[in-house]
Write a protein that binds this DNA or RNA. Structure first.
Lengths: 207, 207
DNA sequence: GTCTATAGAAGGATAGAC
DNA sequence: GTCTATCCTTCTATAGAC
């Protein structure tokens, strides 16, 4: 049998991405074999190489696609939000939590598999990560300038906020005791408190 | 040659732990081979099995030892701190940052390699993680009760604080632009702001 | 306590049939 | 576009010499 009846290259390529994403997230890039992925896709191992030159590229493409989605999604969201730092910050908090909960697997990979990227691929992904952090930084900077926030270090505040928001995906369960809306509210309040005095007493702004 | 001159079993066991910790942190458990570890230790692969029954146990022992150290260290630190929620929280923030920066490798493993633990080992480690989160939770609870904090969900606040503090180790470089002391100060202020209104407006306390 | 040697399984990737 | 078959490497873990 040469080709499966009803097989479809486009579709298989998509299925491959989905399967690899799930498996990498669950077991880790290094722990997943091409054979495992093939089984999940429903083809033989050799057939995978029609859709990716190698395993490393597969990982890179998943992470790169995710970062592009993330950046595009936030820029779209931001465009719909009034040009006020506090409103933009609140929108960012809601956006980040929601986006990450919808894509638990990609996020997990994006944060956990950086070290399994080749040096050049790492550089490319890292740039997009910094780009995203910078977008939050812009909001914080503007809020500081207008006197709405009181942050002494924009970079550290960006890191702290992104870290605490991303952390949600490590424990969130759809059937847990808290609804997504409630979680967003709680985190919103914590972030509001954080930016209200995140370094005010430490001294002059350094960033 | 049967035994290396001057070889020492106790010492080799220790060197093995250190080497495995470093390599697991750098490349990930699944990506590191027993041969790599042996090379780092300076023995042949087979000799490792004198000190660990298998690779999985090696990982578990590293993580378990780290959690024990972490819990013991915080309890010692707490004992030296006045019985006041705000002071204890501040001490916790300083402690967590400092402890984690001194042990970047262990921390990295503790957070990244959970999924590579066997089911039973995972349960054991997870219990100690929850125990640590609970110790922060106690402080937050006490602060809420005394009216010093204004948190609507103790668990979420614990998660958020630990996530943002642990995040420091993902970007901290000893030779960076900020000193450890300065970083501690900035995070302290952010945490102060966070607990001051981390959910106050959301409604009644639920935890 | 460490070595060499190796068993036995699994890995990534390719070649060529259909 | 997918399969089968396979090459070659690497892996964990063990056996037995010293």
């Amino acid at each position: 049998m040469a080709r499966k009846t009803g097989s479809d290259g486009k579709k298989t390529a998509q299925v491959l991405r989905v399967a690899a994403t799930r498996l990498f997230a669950q077991y880790g890039y290094a722990a997943v074999s091409m054979r495992q992925i093939a089984t999940e896709v429903g083809v033989q191992a050799g057939a995978l190489y029609l859709y990716t030159p190698d395993k490393q590229t597969l990982l890179y493409q998943i992470m790169d696609g995710h970062m592009d989605d993330l950046l595009a999604a936030w820029r779209a969201e931001r465009a719909k939000t009034p040009d006020d730092p506090m409103q933009q910050l609140e929108q960012f908090v809601r956006f980040h939590i929601r986006f990450h909960l919808n894509r638990g697997d990609e996020i997990f990979i994006a944060y956990m598999e950086l070290r399994n990227l080749s040096a050049e691929n790492f550089t490319l992904i890292e740039a997009k990560r910094r780009e995203y952090e910078g977008l939050l930084g812009e909001i914080l900077q503007a809020g500081n300038r207008l006197g709405h926030f009181s942050l002494c270090d924009i970079k550290l505040s960006s890191y702290a906020i992104i870290a605490m928001l991303t952390g949600v995906s490590t424990w969130y369960r759809g059937d847990g005791r808290l609804s997504l809306e409630k979680i967003e509210e709680v985190y919103l309040c914590m972030v509001r408190g954080l930016v209200a005095q995140g370094g005010a007493r430490v001294g002059a702004a350094s960033a």
